[in-house]
Design a protein around this nucleic acid. Structure first.
Length: 916
RNA sequence: GGUCGCGUAGCUCAGCUGGUUAGAGCGCUGGUCUCACAUACCAGAGGUCCGGGGUUCGAGUCCCUGCGCGACCA
């Protein structure tokens, strides 16, 4: 009646079908009404996925991120929580727009050829047709998302949330339109936030340029700059107010080289007397710091670089860009200007200079600071509660070190530029009336006519930063702004947010602020930041560098479980995962091998179950349990305890605040893997399964079967979060299951009982087996050949254990074991002494090399002597005895006793065998 | 420039509040196709815990310092 398992596990044949069964049974679907927040009995446990770009395809970074989340959510689902993992995608403004623009470029078109509406239509269509592929790919790696709740940042529902958020912030005075220098990408043709303009260290040049003092041609001020092309927009040079070198020149004027106009010398503390010559040129329209200086001193702000990064006279710049420079790209202009300065003798010096240059995070183009009108969010008021959440212990960041980074950013927060000059995104909900020119109309709903004069209105051309929709994700996916939405009530706040440190500021920190502002509390209690997937040279994996691994290739070759196991096992808290893209076999063998091992344990058990299901362990008379049974059950309890402490606590246990003891505990997924693996493989398979073989045909076969199935079942539960496919398949096979019964929602294991004597006594069996195996290896006994072995206890109890277990020891060591007096006649035999002084003797007439045997035993004795000497020395040290903790001292005494017993036995052996 | 992290076996990393003979996987060596498993089993080799100084009865673990990597921020 029970179908045997195939000789080999074939994930490609089984996994997709298994996923379909979970999905069909609604295993991953959460129910709001079952949660404690809506009167149910289950504690909610919620995570929202970091939404991948809607056009993305799965890469190893997702593979890691989503596996981590899946391990956590599967664990909580089994632990009895109402577990919800919300999936979805991000419309990804710049990124998606760039994809379509690249398509257009292939057709020889730009977005301007299409026009805004056609461009948006085309993008919408593209997304509808090809977007969201990544969500299907997530199923292939086993992600247990609730697909009934899939969200999209640009859906009508979430767009409504975006508008609501904008309007509420505007009404609270936290959104304003500002005229200032922002980061501009001349390729994407949009402004960027501070976070989107990434620093990269570059080797450039520092140019020193002489600006002659007007009216004193013999004198000049030398300024230092890395960007000579911006000098066309200079409106002043500044010196520090306390800088004596230039005091007399403040208030006078210098002649701007090339342009030939006069600009003032001003005193401003922004000028750093220690940098260069202490004189700094001021270009308010093309440098954020200079802009501040310009504002302080009421200076003009001529724009000399246009939106595509070419030199051109913009507002207030008449006469500044000469014919020969006009239209030149900023970098070409730099070279031209340097040449001109060199020719006129005004280039004083050029030296290599290492500095950080901002680049567009989407296309890597060097960002151009640019004066323009943009919408901003006033961040300081939002940051305050977000900081408070962390300080009060309602929010934690793992690993701990990132908390300082979070705090530092929050404390030095700057206003957020949220407008983008793109077409793909949420249009800013602001309308202007040209007729009456009144205040802008900020509205939740479409505005078709001016509220003042009824005239025509036009909507603001800009769209919102993508992150302005992402920061609402934990709220908007649950139904906000409908504050009575069932999901919002049942599932907000969420629990754990899993992501990479790169988007701590972009996304995580802002979500905390949004959660507070719109819902009055932080959106999660734990931020888990994991590392990056890198190749063997520690270079971050990326498609463009060609060092990537396609997770789906790995799934095809080795199965999703092998992929998951490998990345989780390699992922210490906050550490990076190294994988070799040139050797998938080497990288994923550990996972594949482990999965195979599980399969084979399952096969063994099934083959030995017979037709009837194994009896439940609870129905077995405890008196019938052998030492091996007691031992594996004790090991199981230990494994459960280790797994629990690796993972938990799942949430703060005291009033929503992390206590100091649990603040940085838990979510050690690699420790879960290690503990569960060791139990399943090193203990269950290597020892317990082997130990049952002689019993399965005998009178206590039912006991062995019950323990075997119980232990394996528990191992499958512990492992299920990490390797869900194979564990579910095996779990379905080892016992009859109802149609709606799944390991994915079976109970997480609990410990049974404290370890008893029987379990401890089994360790002696393992030691005896080890000793015989070692002797066999040393004397090159053929693995098939049986040997005789005599075992004797150091004291009565040990003697009884060894005598009782002689058949088992014999089975495990391929020996005919009988109780025997270890001190014996000292004939041709190999000897070993166990840690408690018990002894093993393997008579090997004819093969024993007495000299070798004595050498081995003496060697061991020497090792013991060294150890004993160390402990004795410590114990003789009065300061140790008086100052060390009593239990440490007692431990040393006990250990010395053990070693002494063992040494005495060894000495006796050496004496009889080797004649002293 | 500021802040932080890392340096433990050939490789990737564990080692929590200082306390047994510093562990795991992969790789390596020797032996085995033993009736679940050669994607396996058995046995084994391999470590001046980056260098130097200090605190301590005791340091891979704490402090200082040097060297070498890396991250984030300006």
């Amino acid at each position: 009646m029970r179908a045997d398992l195939a000789p080999q596990y074939d994930p490609s044949r089984l996994d997709a079908a298994q996923y379909a069964r979970w999905k069909a049974a609604g295993v991953f679907t959460a129910h709001a009404d079952r949660t404690t927040r809506l009167g149910g009995s289950r504690v909610p446990f919620v995570m929202v996925i970091p939404p991948p770009n809607v056009t993305a395809v799965l890469h190893m970074g997702h593979g890691l991120n989503d596996t981590v989340q899946d391990v956590i959510v599967r664990w909580r689902r089994m632990a009895g929580d109402e577990a919800l993992w919300v999936p979805g995608t991000d419309h990804a403004g710049i990124a998606t727009q760039n994809v379509i623009e690249r398509q257009l470029a292939q057709e020889g078109l730009t977005r301007f050829d299409l026009g805004r509406d056609a461009f948006v239509d085309r993008t919408t269509k593209f997304v509808a047709e090809t977007g969201g592929v990544i969500l299907e790919q997530l199923e292939a790696i086993g992600a247990s998302c609730d697909w009934t709740r899939t969200a999209y940042t640009f859906s009508p529902e979430l767009s409504r949330a975006v508008r609501e958020a904008f309007v509420r912030l505007y009404e609270a005075g936290l959104i304003y339109k500002g005229h200032r220098v922002i980061h501009w990408c001349p390729r994407c043709l949009t402004s960027l936030s501070d976070e989107e303009a990434e620093f990269a260290d570059e080797r450039g040049e520092l140019y020193q340029i002489a600006y002659p003092v007007a009216g004193s041609p013999s004198r000049s001020l030398v300024v230092a700059t890395t960007r000579p092309e911006t000098m066309l927009g200079d409106v002043a040079v500044a010196v520090h107010p306390d800088d004596d070198r230039y005091r007399d020149l403040v208030g006078r004027r210098v002649v701007l080289p090339i342009v030939g106009i006069e600009i003032p010398v001003i005193a401003d503390p922004y000028a750093d007397p220690a940098f260069g010559t202490g004189v700094v040129k001021i270009t308010p329209a093309h440098d954020a710091n200079d802009f501040e200086v310009g504002v302080r001193h009421g200076l003009p702000m001529p724009v000399v670089i246009d939106e595509v990064g070419a030199m051109r006279e913009g507002p207030d710049a008449h006469g500044r860009v000469s014919e020969s420079l006009r239209g030149l790209d900023r970098f070409d202009a730099r070279a031209r200007i340097v040449a001109l300065l060199r020719a006129s003798g005004q280039l004083v010096n050029v030296e290599p200079h290492q500095h950080a240059v901002r680049h567009c995070y989407r296309c890597d183009t060097v960002v151009e600071p640019r004066l323009s009108d943009q919408w901003f969010v006033r961040m300081a008021p939002l940051a305050k509660p977000a900081l408070e959440a962390l300080r009060a212990g309602r929010l934690r960041v793992l690993p701990e070190r990132w908390e300082a980074v979070y705090v530092n950013w929050m404390e030095n927060i700057r206003d957020w530029n949220i407008s983008r000059q793109l077409w793909w995104g949420h249009r800013i909900p602001v309308w202007y009336c040209d007729a009456c020119g009144g205040e802008p109309i900020v509205s939740r709903d479409e505005v078709t006519a001016c509220v003042q004069c009824g005239g025509a209105v036009r909507q603001d051309d800009d769209v919102l930063d993508t992150w302005f929709s992402s920061w609402l994700w934990p709220l908007s996916t649950l139904g906000w702004p409908d504050e009575n939405a069932r999901d919002l009530t049942a599932f907000y706040p969420t629990d754990v947010l899993v992501t990479a440190p790169e988007i701590l500021f972009f996304w995580v920190a802002r979500m905390v602020m949004a959660g507070h502002f719109f819902m009055g509390r932080e959106p999660f209690h734990t931020v888990y930041l994991h590392g990056t997937v890198r190749d063997m040279r520690h270079v971050k994996m990326s498609k463009s560098l060609g060092n990537g691994i396609d997770p789906l290739d790995v799934v095809r070759l080795y199965g999703a479980d092998a992929l998951r196991y490998t990345v989780i096992a390699g992922l210490g808290l906050g550490t990076d995962v190294m994988l070799d893209p040139t050797n998938l076999e080497q990288s994923f063998a550990p996972g594949r091998n482990f999965v195979t091992k599980l399969w084979n344990i399952g096969r063994f058990i099934l083959q030995n179950l017979g037709d009837a299901p194994a009896p439940a362990l609870a129905d077995i008379d405890p008196a019938r349990l052998t030492r091996a049974d007691a031992w594996i059950l004790a090991r199981l309890d230990a494994a459960i305890a280790e797994c629990d402490s690796a993972l938990g606590p799942a949430r703060p246990t005291h009033d929503g605040r992390w206590t100091s003891g649990e603040l940085y505990a838990g979510l050690r997924l690699s420790e879960l893997v290690e503990s569960a693996r060791r139990f399943a493989w090193s203990e269950l398979a290597d020892w317990y399964v082997e130990s049952t073989k002689p019993r399965l045909g005998g009178p206590d076969a039912d006991v062995a079967r019950a323990v075997l199935v119980h232990a394996f079942d528990a191992a499958l539960r512990l492992l299920h979060p990490v390797v869900p496919f194979i564990t579910e398949t095996l779990w379905q096979a080892i016992a009859p299951r109802a149609a709606d019964e799944f390991l994915a929602r079976a109970a997480w294991p609990k410990r049974r009982a404290p370890e008893g004597d029987a379990a401890r006594e089994f360790e002696l069996v393992r030691e005896a087996v080890g000793a015989i195996r070692q002797i066999r290896a040393e004397y090159n006994i053929a693995p098939g050949a049986r040997v005789a072995a005599l075992v004797g206890g150091a004291e009565q109890r040990a003697g009884r254990v060894l005598a009782d277990e002689a058949p088992l020891i014999g089975h495990l060591a391929r020996a005919d074991v009988s109780p025997g007096d270890g001190t014996g006649d000292g004939g041709a035999a190999a000897h070993a002494v166990l840690s408690d002084g018990s002894h093993v003797r393997v008579p090997l007439a004819g093969t024993i090399d007495l000299g070798k045997e004595c050498g081995r035993l003496r060697g061991e004795l020497e090792q013991l002597a060294t150890l004993r000497a160390g402990i004795e020395q410590r114990l003789r040290n009065e300061r140790f005895v008086t100052r060390a903790k009593p239990e440490v001292v007692a431990g040393e005494r006990r250990r010395l006793e053990e070693l002494t017993t063992r040494a005495a036995q060894l000495t006796a052996k050496v004496q009889t065998l080797c004649g002293g």
